[in-house]
C-alpha cells in the first residue's frame, strides 16, 4: 500500500503525516496525532462516537479515509477549546450532567456545535434530529438536549 506525506489541517494547525491512503481519519487522529478525544465505538459508522467536523460539517472519522481530507480542515473536540476556555457546549454539558461516562460526549458536542453554527436557536425537535446519529447509552438524552439549549441561549447573549 502506497505511503505518502499528507499535510492535514487539524484544529487550525497543519500536521505533516506519513501515512498510507487506506487509513481512516479516526486512526490518524488517534494514533499519529494523539488526539484521543475522538472516540472509537464501532469502526463502521453506527454509533457516532468518532464524529469530528470537516469544514464545519459533522463526519464520522471511522468512515473517512485520511486521503479524503487532504484539502479540508478538521475540528476535533480538543479544537473546540479556545485560549484555554471551553466552548459554551463543553461548559453546558458539564454543568447540566449531560456527560455520564463521557464516551459519546466528544462526538455529541461536535454534532451539536455544527447544529448551532447553522441554527442559532434550534427547537427541541431540531436538536433531537441533529443528534440522532450520536448514540448515548447513559443519559437517556434529555440532559444532553437541555445542555444544547443552554449553550444556544448563552450564545445569544
Amino acid at each position: 500500500m502506497a505511503e505518502r506525506v499528507l499535510a492535514l489541517r487539524v484544529n487550525g494547525e497543519t500536521h505533516r503525516v506519513l501515512t498510507s491512503d487506506h487509513r481512516t481519519l479516526l486512526e490518524v487522529l488517534r494514533e499519529d496525532l494523539a488526539l484521543t478525544g475522538t472516540k472509537h465505538g464501532c469502526d463502521v459508522g453506527e454509533c457516532g462516537a468518532c464524529t469530528v467536523l470537516l469544514d464545519g460539517r459533522p463526519v464520522l472519522a471511522c468512515l473517512v479515509l485520511v486521503s479524503q481530507v487532504a484539502t479540508g480542515s478538521v475540528t476535533t473536540i480538543e479544537g473546540l477549546v479556545e485560549g484555554g476556555k471551553p466552548h459554551e457546549l463543553q461548559s453546558a454539558f458539564a454543568e447540566l450532567g449531560a456527560a455520564q461516562c463521557g464516551y459519546c460526549t466528544p462526538g455529541m458536542i461536535l454534532s451539536a456545535s455544527a447544529l448551532l453554527d447553522e441554527v442559532a436557536q434550534p427547537d427541541t425537535d431540531e436538536i433531537k434530529a441533529a443528534l440522532t446519529g450520536n448514540l448515548c447509552r447513559c443519559t437517556g438524552y434529555n440532559k444532553i438536549i437541555e445542555a444544547v439549549e443552554l449553550a444556544a441561549d448563552r450564545g445569544q447573549l
Binding site: 478525544g37 457546549l89 458539564a94 450532567g97 460526549t105 458536542i109
Partner: peptide, 21 residues
Amino acid sequence: LPRVDALQQTTGQTQFADDLN
C-alpha cells in the same frame, strides 16, 4: 454540582483504556 471530572470529559481529556498508548 457537576461531576468533578466533567470538563475533562467534555473537552476530550478523559483517558479511557483505548486512549493509553
